[in-house]
């Protein structure tokens, strides 16, 4: 076993202090844009923490989705709201209570959890069965096995959540703008630096995304991480003016967004042939899992891209 207090432990403690410090700054800084940037930094630190906890799949997800995508979404909103400062809080006699009650509740829950962390004997009993049944799943990465086999039903509902969020955010479109292209119209000079970057990066991004998708079956990565990268490439290409932003009424973009969950649900429904639900037969486990993942990756990429672009809006 490792010595009781090693350099790595020191690293961990410093990392934790940094994470908490950045979280506090993000929560207290007045400037809203700064708070958003601090949240992204926070996400990157948390991703490092996940690497230290041996959870590389989560680290990839946290970096790509938790830090990257959430950050982009927030920055986009801050820019659209054209505000950086928090409005001065209205003075009210509840103001004191409105800070003290949350503060004491936060303190209570944090200290309660810390107490539990130190005193309770925690149990993780599922790792053994996960590994024991791995040969039947057709993949070597146990996390992928959980996501697309043992608990594939969670993932099915989760992709439906993404789908619902997409339709929900389309639902915020102005009625008279329905059918327009998503987001603001992009104004990019054709030979500008962004356009060049937007032409240069997508091929690299596609390769990285395919790598992460392909590696997900056996090592680290998977549909969600790869889908996020594809979404980023897609958005960059739109920002650079290489391709046009899609519109919500377009048949092809709707098909992209729907293909993954639809194929997944279809596979789930074929399970009734075996008097069950969402069966991944052992014989075809690997190709079927990869097919589901491929469709999901496409849909996740399309959905995330559309969520970032947001509803169509009038140019100011």
């Amino acid at each position: 076993m490792a010595p009781a207090f090693s350099a790595l432990t020191l690293f961990d403690v410093v990392l934790c202090v940094l994470i908490i410090g950045v979280a506090l700054c993000s929560s207290s800084v007045r400037d809203l844009f700064a708070a958003t940037v601090l949240l992204i930094i926070y996400g990157v630190f948390v991703a490092i923490a996940w690497v230290r906890l041996g959870a590389v799949d989560v680290a990839l997800a946290e970096a790509a989705i938790g830090a990257g995508l959430t950050g982009v979404l927030l920055i986009g909103a801050v820019a659209r709201l054209k505000i950086t400062e928090s409005p001065a809080a209205a003075v009210s006699r509840w103001q004191f209570a409105a800070k003290v009650i949350p503060a004491s509740l936060g303190l209570l829950i944090a200290s309660g959890l810390a107490y539990l962390v130190l005193t309770v004997e925690w149990r993780e009993t599922l790792q053994a069965p996960v590994l024991a049944n791995l040969p039947d799943t057709g993949v070597l990465n146990p996390v992928t096995a959980v996501l697309l086999n043992y608990r594939a039903y969670d993932t099915l509902l989760e992709t439906s959540v993404l789908f619902a969020a997409l339709i929900a955010s389309w639902c915020t479109t102005h009625d008279d703008l329905w059918g327009e292209r998503a987001g603001l119209r992009q104004h990019t000079r054709r030979a500008g630096i962004l356009a060049t970057f937007g032409r240069f990066l997508p091929p690299i991004g596609l390769i990285v995304g395919i790598h992460i998708f392909w590696a997900g079956a056996d090592k680290w990565g998977g549909a969600f991480q790869a889908g996020t990268i594809f979404a980023a490439v897609w958005i960059l290409a739109i920002m650079a003016g290489v391709i046009d932003a899609p519109n919500a009424t377009g048949r092809s973009i709707r098909s992209f967004a729907v293909a993954g969950p639809m194929f997944f649900t279809f596979v789930a429904l074929t399970g009734v042939l075996a008097q069950s639900f969402l069966i991944i037969p052992v014989m075809v486990a690997k190709p079927l899992t990869l097919a589901i993942e491929a469709c999901l990756t496409l849909s996740i990429a399309a959905t995330l891209m559309l969520l970032v672009l947001g509803a169509p809006r009038r140019s100011a």
């Binding site: 098909s255 967004a257 729907v258 639809m262 789930a268 429904l269 009734v272 008097q275 639900f277 969402l278």
Partner: peptide
């Protein structure tokens, strides 16, 4: 398909059917 079998997964259908329909409706 043995629809009358007592172990036919009817309850799974009550989730999968509306989900599938939602996707078709979105198309």
């Amino acid at each position: 398909l043995d629809l009358a079998a007592p172990d036919f997964p009817w309850i799974a259908l009550s989730v999968a059917i509306p989900l599938f329909a939602a996707l078709i409706a979105a198309l």
